[in-house]
Nucleic acid binder design. Structure first.
Length: 336
DNA sequence: CATGCGTGGCT
DNA sequence: TAGCCAAGCAT
């Protein structure tokens, strides 16, 4: 891996660093729909959708455009029911984001508009330090710095920073650096540029330092070794047993989540291994969720008493319900 | 401060 | 295949 030697320090010479980023971005910046608007609502929707979610997912499957046509302003989302909201979010994951976005829409609607102070923005549900600053930079073009996964990687390499970037102390340091580096005169361009740099040249694994517009400012001799992250617990293999139950009318038994996290989503009813031991297993599916590798065993039964939170649904109604992806796929395969 | 939260693409 | 990673946040 060939990498040009660092000849300049971005913290010591922030002006040429910002210029190099701005020039490159001005000629090569990508055209995303959320870069074509300054509407705080449209920007907020994009930022929340993009939390821990790749651009290709949000764009490729049309989530962003569809969501904004369904909920074009905060007042519309503020009065939306669970079902259309969760359905619009189906497949994006982290479903709590959708509910928190509606809570924020209600607060903004009640207040008659978006707050402009960083502290007030950060008190809104689902808006943390990153999203609050992103709103200020991308919607209002006001001085702000952001640290997301891309920026953390870029800064760690620029500074040859070998502490864990996902630890609280590491993040604190990176935010301080980010605020010193950020361009106070071109917040929108600067923040767009440094994030896009992390998606393109300064990508995870082996970066493309030879083409990087700021390689002269980059201190690390071994970029592929950065950033350092805290060790994650090893994936655990677990098994679940669910029912594929249809009554005499052909209706399907489903369970609606009640907890804090996935409230409102519909799943196949779960039973203990003992309860399904005598039922024929008609399919198994595997999927990953957080730190678990799940093998879902699907058992067929003609009928079953509905328990708390469970109800029967005609086949035509299934498509209108919001289901987590693994269950959506399982149901579609079983109905095919 | 560590952990849980979804999903899909890439290595 | 298994692990890593992504425009983080709340608890």
């Amino acid at each position: 891996m060939l990498k040009p030697r660092a000849t300049r320090d971005p913290l010591h010479e922030p002006l040429p660093f910002r210029d190099a980023l701005a020039v490159w971005f001005g000629q090569n910046g990508r055209d995303y729909p959320w870069r074509r608007t300054t509407d705080p609502w449209a920007v907020l929707v994009s930022e929340v959708m993009l939390q821990q979610t790749q651009i290709a997912t949000v764009l490729g499957r049309g989530y962003y455009t569809r969501f904004l046509s369904l909920f074009p302003d905060p007042a519309t989302l503020a009065v939306a029911e669970d079902e259309p909201l969760l359905k619009a979010w189906e497949g994006l994951g982290y479903y709590r984001r959708a509910r928190m976005l509606r809570e924020t829409a209600r607060a903004v609607t009640a207040a008659g508009g978006f707050p402009d102070s960083l502290d007030t923005l950060q008190k809104l549900p689902g808006i943390g330090r990153y999203t609050a600053n992103a709103l200020r930079a991308f919607a209002h073009d006001r001085p702000a710095a952001v640290v997301d996964g891309n920026v953390a990687r870029v800064l760690a390499r620029l500074l040859d920073y070998h502490h864990a970037v996902d630890s609280p102390s590491g993040l604190k340091h990176l935010w301080e650096v980010a605020e010193r580096l950020a361009d106070p005169h071109r917040p929108r361009i600067y923040n767009s540029a440094i994030m896009e740099l992390g998606q393109t040249f300064c990508r995870p694994g082996v970066p493309d330092c030879l083409a990087c517009p700021v390689s002269a400012f980059c201190k690390t001799p071994e970029p592929s070794a950065l950033p350092v992250k805290t060790a994650k617990p090893k994936t655990e293999r677990i098994h679940t047993h669910v029912l594929w139950a249809r009554d005499r009318m052909g209706r399907i038994l489903l369970h609606q989540e009640q907890g804090k996290r996935r409230q409102g989503l519909w799943k196949l009813p779960e039973r203990t291994p003992e309860e399904t031991a005598d039922l024929p297993e008609i399919a198994t599916r595997t999927y990953g969720i957080t730190r678990f590798h799940v093998t879902m065993h699907i058992h067929e039964c003609a009928d079953a008493p509905a328990r708390e939170g469970e109800s029967w649904h005609p086949e035509e109604a299934i498509a209108t319900l919001a289901m987590p992806s693994p269950y959506r796929k399982a149901v579609e395969a079983l109905l095919a």
